[in-house]
Simulated assay, not measured.
Amino acid sequence: MEAAAAATTVFVYGTLKRGFPNHPRLAASGSPFAGAASTTSPLSLIIGPYSVPFLVPAPTPSAGRLVSGELFSASPSALADLDLFEGTHLGVYERRRITVVVDGTSSEVEAEAYFANASYAEDLWRRCGGEAAEIGEYTVEHAARYVPPSGRSPGVSGLMDAVRSFIATTPPES
C-alpha cells in the first residue's frame, strides 16, 4: 500500500481567508484551518485591479510590512486546485516558500504562499503607489470591492490583461 502524500501548509492573505469571497473554494477542497499567522519578514501586500490582493517581495530595503493571514493544510490535489485557481500556469501568481509565525506563539512554520509573478510584481507595486500603498492585512472592506472572476473581462487572461493595462496607465494625481 502506498503512503499518502504529505499535505502542504499554505499561507493565505486575501480572498481565500475564512469569511472572504473565495474561501468556499478552499473549504471545498477539504483543507483544514491550521491557525492565524503573520510573515516573519516584511513583504509588500498591495491591492490591484478588481480589488485583488497581491503579495510582492519588498522591492526596496525600507518597503514591506509584516502581513497577517491564515494557514491551511492542503493535500496534493487541493494544492493543484489552488495553483489552477491562482493562475500559476498563466503567470498570474507563483507559489513560493515563506516563513510565518503562528499567532499567539513563537512557533515559526514553513508555508507556501502565492506571490504576484516576478514578471510584473515590481511594476504593479510601483503603479499601486509603492510603500504608500502597502497594507498589513486584506480586510473585509477590501473584499467588499473585490470583483470575482465571473464579473471580470471574459477569458482566462482577464486578470492579467487588467494588470497589464493598469500598469501601463499613469496614476491619477493625488
Rank of each mutant, 00 (worst) to 15 (best):
L16A: 07
F166R: 07
Y114N: 09
F72A: 05
L71G: 08
A28L: 11
T170H: 11
A118L: 15
A133G: 07
D103A: 15
G158T: 04
Y146W: 06
P76Y: 11
P53D: 01
V12M: 02
G129S: 11
P76A: 13
E134G: 07
T9F: 08
V102W: 10
G155M: 10
V56N: 08
Y138D: 06
A144Q: 01
E141S: 06
A80L: 12
A162Y: 02
I98A: 05
A58R: 01
D83Q: 09
G158S: 08
A37T: 12
A113H: 04
I98T: 03
S31P: 03
E131L: 14
S68E: 15
L90Q: 13
P154N: 01
G64A: 00
V67S: 07
C128I: 06
Y146Q: 00
V56Y: 10
T99C: 15
A27K: 06
A133V: 07
E173Y: 11
R65W: 05
R18C: 03
G130A: 01
A168K: 15
A63L: 13
A80H: 07
G30S: 06
F85E: 10
L90H: 11
L55D: 06
P149M: 00
F85P: 02
A5L: 12
L26C: 09
S44N: 10
T40S: 04
E110L: 10
S29R: 08
R18A: 15
N117I: 04
F85H: 13
E112F: 10
L159N: 00
